[in-house]
Design a protein around this nucleic acid. Structure first.
Lengths: 190, 190
DNA sequence: TATACTTTTCAGTAATTCCTGAACGTCGAC
DNA sequence: GTCGACGTTCAGGAATTACTGAAAAGTATA
């Protein structure tokens, strides 16, 4: 399989971006290739297209599977494993965010919580704990908010985003119209 | 300078996390140390506390400056440069997001836009372009939304987040109060 | 069960990234 | 100017990570 220049540049870009992340070049390129491919590909096709060794592709696919970014499937009458990237970019985004949370955010929250349980016995620790507490609050708040928002379906999410900072105005309105709370409550009901 | 166990564990954790990102261990540790420090530190103090070479610290600080994550300042009567991490965690978050956008998102958007300008002359390219277009739309939408939300002050942001998916309900309310024709059209549209 | 095909593992090597010490540059005090 | 304190650069060695080929382990079919 020969890549077109268009696909080539996309794949190379993702390789680069991957290595800026923790993800390595190989994995980024494999994912990019699957993302733009019109049909599922097997490991040999990927290895040939990207000029990687078969074993490197195998490892890359395993990594992508651990991120739940690729789907494994079979073609009738073919024993080989085929891989594809899910269609829905919003779902992909969700998956990515969820995995990153699991791998990066959660351990950090655990570490912070543990640190905040310690009774500080000196000034540096007292200050450090204050700083950690503020970080903990920010992370806690933003991830739980994100988890919440992430549950919305694509259409609603799209609306929310298009609304942009106008959401702020709705908020402020709610805030300044205390007596009108009944009206809001009524209108927002299911 | 000797680190307390509390600070030590925080610093080590950030070193680890750093290397999961593109950032290396050194840089992560330096930042963590500055973050919890009650006063600005100079390069020698950092080098001693973390047991890195002076030159390593110098490079790390340069990197952190390029991310605008540390502030350079001077103490009266002291020629050395002192560094501190900004206090406000919300501001830090903002800075981080902005820099990442500049370094990762913007180049990707440029690549995608260029790719979408090409007139595809074969089926694979036609499909690839469709996929790239959907990715482009998602990134465009979410980053412009994020830029918008990021302008809010801390208090409002905090409110917005605490509101969580209740924001969804406000949105739906707004939607359901429109003439039925609009809503139906929207729901059935692409 | 044997066979042929496919995927995975892994030890070794290649490539990359990290880190250091030494040399160099800069700047203010004298 | 010289001196000394401080910051930066950089070549090269150390450490880590990526990648490969060969061998092993699965697996469906006959």
């Amino acid at each position: 399989m020969n890549l077109t220049p268009l696909v080539q540049s996309f794949v190379l870009h993702f390789g680069e971006m991957g290595s800026r992340w923790g993800i390595n070049r190989t994995v980024g390129q494999i994912y990019a290739l699957l993302f733009v491919s019109a049909r599922p590909l097997n490991a040999d096709e990927i290895a040939e297209a990207l000029a990687f060794s078969r074993s490197n592709v195998s490892m890359g696919l395993k990594e992508l599977e651990s991120w739940r970014l690729v789907r494994l499937l079979h073609q009738p009458g073919d024993r080989r494993e085929y891989f594809s990237a899910p269609e829905d970019v919003w779902a992909i985004f969700r998956t990515l965010a969820e995995e990153r949370r699991k791998r990066e955010v959660d351990p950090t929250l655990t570490m912070l919580r543990d640190a905040l349980l310690v009774q500080p016995d000196n000034e540096p620790d007292r200050h450090a704990q204050k700083r950690m507490a503020s970080m903990h609050e920010l992370i806690e708040l933003s991830t739980s908010w994100f988890a919440d928002v992430q549950k919305l379906d694509e259409r609603t999410l799209r609306q929310l985003m298009k609304l942009g900072s106008a959401a702020q105005k709705l908020l402020l309105m709610k805030d300044s119209l205390k007596p009108a709370a009944t009206r809001n409550k009524k209108a927002a009901g299911p």
